[in-house]
């Protein structure tokens, strides 16, 4: 069964994209991640123009993270003050990112840039996660308890002005670091078609020292609004959001995520992290291959974007 995508301007097999949404939804439910870093590459490799893949995927992340954010809100796990500062930065970053996508497309290096971003971030994060999960597994076997959060350390971050009180996080810190982190994540979200949770969560834990119980909720809250803004911006600035494709991915994704969440309860946290790390590295390597391997054809053609 085929569907002619109105913005991507190609005929797509409905079942393939539903299945793709389902599979990525399953993995995101399993690992508790947004899945953007898996879906955008899959879309690109299946022939969707990279810019359309990135724009459309931000719509799908909005859909998949809103239910999570809602659940976290009901459990009062969102620090709205922190979320708002992160979001403000995020939107600034997203505006910059969407502009950058436009310019890079005009220069014809957007595909390269996306691949390079994926290689860099997935490579670094995948390696860190792999090391961490292997260490944890080894320690668990050795029987020593794993200490979680070191708190009360003073860093240069605490000397910055514009201090705000973040009640839910029990923090009194400057608004500048969360704003900058939000901005960086917003930039990445716009360029890579991801929610940015994989950067946001570690940054909140290790840099801002937000208590882990509010990290996920606050990150999800920020992701919902950030990806919603990014979708609107991509649609209005670059016309690269395909609503038909987004609906297909959403439909597959929400169903897959439910099954993934059930399956996830049967695996141990460090096993999950190990598997996720392996997956992240595989996607990163696939992009690395694209950059290094000699292309089948040196030439490529495309419609002129924005007057070239």
């Amino acid at each position: 069964m085929h569907f002619y995508l109105p913005v991507a301007e190609m005929s797509a097999n409905i079942l393939i994209f539903l299945a793709m949404g389902g599979a990525v939804g399953f993995l995101s439910g399993l690992f508790g991640v947004g899945g953007g870093f898996l879906m955008t590459p899959l879309l690109i490799f299946s022939g969707i123009p990279p810019a359309v893949a990135v724009g459309t995927e931000s719509a799908q992340i909005t859909a998949s993270s809103v239910s999570g954010a809602f659940a976290q809100w009901r459990r009062r796990n969102i620090d709205f003050a922190m979320g708002t500062v992160l979001l403000a930065g995020g939107i600034v970053g997203s505006v910059l990112g969407v502009q950058l996508v436009g310019s890079l497309r005009r220069l014809g290096v957007f595909d390269f840039f996306v691949a390079a971003c994926y290689v860099t971030f997935l490579g670094v994060i995948g390696t860190l996660m792999l090391i961490e999960s292997v260490n944890t597994m080894r320690k668990m076997r050795g029987g020593t308890s794993v200490s979680s959060r070191r708190s009360g350390q003073h860093m240069w971050i605490h000397g910055l002005p514009l201090k705000l009180r973040f009640q839910r996080s029990k923090l009194y810190i400057s608004a500048i670091p969360p704003f900058l982190i939000g901005m960086f994540v917003g930039l990445l979200a716009a360029i890579m078609g991801v929610g940015g949770g994989f950067i946001m969560v570690p940054a909140m834990i290790y840099l801002l020292r937000v208590p882990t119980n509010v990290v996920v909720g606050t990150s999800l809250f920020q992701i919902v609004f950030l990806t919603a803004a990014t979708t609107a911006l991509h649609a209005s600035q670059n016309q690269t959001v395909d609503v038909a494709l987004a609906v297909l991915l959403m439909a597959g994704g929400v169903v897959g995520a439910q099954f993934g969440a059930v399956a996830g309860e049967r695996l141990k946290a460090e096993q999950l992290r190990f598997l996720l790390a392996a997956l992240v590295l595989m996607v990163g390597l696939r992009f690395a291959w694209q950059l290094i391997a000699p292309p089948a054809d040196l030439y490529s053609i495309g419609a002129a974007v924005g007057g070239a």
């Binding site: 799908q60 909005t62 859909a63 993270s65 809103v66 609503v243 959403m250």
Partner: peptide, 10 residues
Amino acid sequence: TVAIALAAGL
């Protein structure tokens, strides 16, 4: 598109 996404998720 954003409205559809939010509605679908909820």
